[in-house]
Each structure stands twice: as C-alpha cells, then as structure tokens.
Design a protein around this nucleic acid. Structure first.
Lengths: 125, 125
DNA sequence: TTTTGTGCAAACTATTTGCAAACCG
DNA sequence: CGGTTTGCAAATAGTTTGCACAAAA
C-alpha cells in the first residue's frame, strides 16, 4: 500500500460523507499536490475491488464512495445529491430471494427525498 | 409528438426488455435510417421527464429504459447486466418513511444475482 | 407562420489507459 | 533488481448541446 492509496483511503474512512472522486482528489491534493487524478481513480477502483470501500452509483451524477462496507440503504437528496446511510433492514434480501427462488448476491436501495436544506431554498419549479 | 419520438416510444413499449440508448438507436435505425443518435437521447429525456418511461441508472454501464412507469424493484444480473422487473412490495417506502420521519419521493431498489445463462458459462475467476 | 424538433458534428463529463520514470520490497 | 504504482497526457464511453434546416401545430 503506497502513500497515495493510504491518503485516499484515510479521506474516505475519516468521515461519513459520501464523496465523489473529484472531491476526494481535491482533498487529497491539499496534502499531496503532485497527486494525479488518474491515481485517485485507480486506487478507488482497487479499494472497491478489495472490499475496503463501497462505490455508490448515482443517478445523472458522478459516483460516490462509502466507507461503510456492509450493505445498507441510502437516503439521497434529489436536489443536492447528498447521501446519508440508513440502517440495514433485516431480511430485505432474504424476503426477495425466498419469493423469487433466486440466490441474491447483494442489493442497492436508494430512497429519494428533498433534504431540509434544499426544501428551504425553493420547491416549485 | 413526432414520428421519431413515436418510434422510440414504441420500441420501449413493445417489449419488457430494458434496453440501453444505443440498443434503442440501433433498433430505431432499422426502421428510420436517418435517425440521429442525439435525437434518441433527446427524446428519451423528454419521455422520462413526461413520465412515459423510466430511466434505470446501471452500475458501470449505460442507462437502460423501462416501459413500466410505476415504481418497482429490479433484478439485475451482475455478469451480463440483464434486468428483470419484480413486483412492488407493499409498504417499502412507507416503512422507511415512518421509521425516519421523512417524506420520500421515490426509491430505486436493485437486487443483484447471476442469471442462469451466465451461471452456466463459468463462475470461478 | 410560429414554434418545436431534427440531423449533424462538436463539446462535455466522468472515467480509463499507455507509457516512461519513480517507488517498494 | 523486478514487479508495482505513479504522474502525465491522450483516449474512451456515454451523453449533451449549438446551429441551420425541416416538420408540425
């Protein structure tokens, strides 16, 4: 594990924020200005592959990265894109697996809302 | 509604497949060779905005489009990306909304598995 | 005709990759 | 040393957009 990978991992592990690659790149460069964007993407890919972090595919927006490794739903603001972790409901996969008779390998549940901050700004068109 | 929009809509409405923009483009061009790729994307966007079809954001793959307008989970093959509709479980959103005290506007639930066809080919590394 | 939509091509965003030099063990 | 990783820059994939012309209301 190189200095740059450790740095990238630390940024993700240090806070519950679900940051984009670009945000991580900016934060990392504050500490290591020579860091290349490609290196960030490469290491994020490796960390995901090794199961150290999770990648969250967002709708019409760059992916975000989650330090929480166990599967759980996410609460996503439709306006600003902010993501919050939710506790994992028991038996979600098991229920579907039993109903369909298929073996499930994982799930991705996003619940959409408008966060208080965004609701405050405006809500009509 | 123009001929091209009607054609694009028909392709989606005609089958339960969840096709990508490129697949729709190819199918549409079989019938209207002058159709431009940009027109496909523009019309898909409009159809989604008007609630006629639904856009499915896929992990590390192009988006797919669903003729089913009402919210429901999707069963996704991790290997080939094929998507199948699942019946909507009652009270999924309501349960979370009540537990968190937030108003939810929608959800996106993907359940991952390996489809029989892909399981047949190989499964180790 | 007045608006809206199309085809084409260029632009854009997020991400990936080839390569030579730097690093790690 | 010898394989791995980096930084850089160019390449990609998917999608969006500006513009002059064509179709629809």
């Amino acid at each position: 594990m190189t200095r740059q990978r450790q740095l990238i991992y630390n940024i993700i592990a240090a806070a519950p924020e679900h940051r984009t690659a670009e945000e991580i790149y900016d934060l990392a460069r504050a500490e290591m200005p020579s860091l290349a964007r490609g290196t960030v993407y490469r290491n994020l890919g490796l960390l995901v592959r090794d199961g150290e972090i999770r990648k969250l595919e967002m709708a019409d927006a760059p992916a975000r990265y989650d330090r929480e490794r166990s599967p759980h739903p996410h609460l996503v603001c439709q306006v600003c894109g902010r993501v919050e972790d939710l506790p994992a409901p028991d038996g979600l996969m098991e229920g579907f697996a039993a109903a369909r008779g298929v073996a499930l390998t994982g799930y991705d549940l996003k619940l959409y809302h408008v966060c208080p901050a965004c609701r405050g700004k405006r809500h009509g068109a």
